[in-house]
Design a binder for these strands. Structure first.
Lengths: 95, 95
DNA sequence: TTGATAGGCAAGCAATCACTTGCCTATAGT
DNA sequence: ACTATAGGCAAGTGATTGCTTGCCTATCAA
């Protein structure tokens, strides 16, 4: 679960999630192009690829193979419990 | 805002937030003792102090001076908007 | 005033991280 | 078969990070 926080700690990875939240099922190259044109992120293909690996390991991105293309989709489920971790603890103490 | 994510990326800092969520207004030494006894965190006083600095810079912890004591309190407000960043973006696209 | 307690400052170190570089595999088009 | 495209693997590098070490300041109690 700490992987989710580590994944969110990097600004480039947050931009990737921003982009995938806007448009699902993008390939690595599509993501690269959009990062540079829309977010002025100048990361190389390999850099973005490694970020996507990390995001997938954290459960924030799911992938789907189709021929030589690999499509990436955001998975927001791990995010749902994050903010509530500490907020819920406090409300349990003061019901 | 990226400071919040970076602050949450470290497991010791998350334990500190766990502890402050359970009990507010703790001094540095109190936090140190509770981290070791309850979470088996073996960090030194200086290490915990630096973590608290970082958490305060991220807006997740507020401090209050009283004589030679400095009390620390969790501030969950920055957490409220975190998880909703990407979830909200998706729901805006598919209303 | 002296000693103990609570905390702060800053330099240094080892581990981790983001990124590059270079090469390799696999699929698709011609 | 040949070339281009989409992606993967792995070693190396520079910067960041978490932590230690050593010393210093401030508050309180005797």
């Amino acid at each position: 679960m700490g992987d989710v926080f580590k994944a969110l700690a990097d600004p480039t990875r947050r931009h990737i999630l921003d982009e995938l939240a806007e448009r699902d099922d993008q390939t690595l190259f599509e993501i690269c192009v959009r990062l540079t044109t829309k977010y002025q992120v100048t990361s190389s293909r390999q850099a973005v690829s490694q970020h996507l690996e990390l995001l997938e390991a954290a459960g924030l991105v799911r992938t789907r193979r189709e021929g030589r293309y690999k499509f990436h989709t955001i998975d927001t489920r791990p995010l749902a419990q994050i903010a509530e971790r500490w907020i819920r603890t406090k409300s349990q103490e003061n019901p």
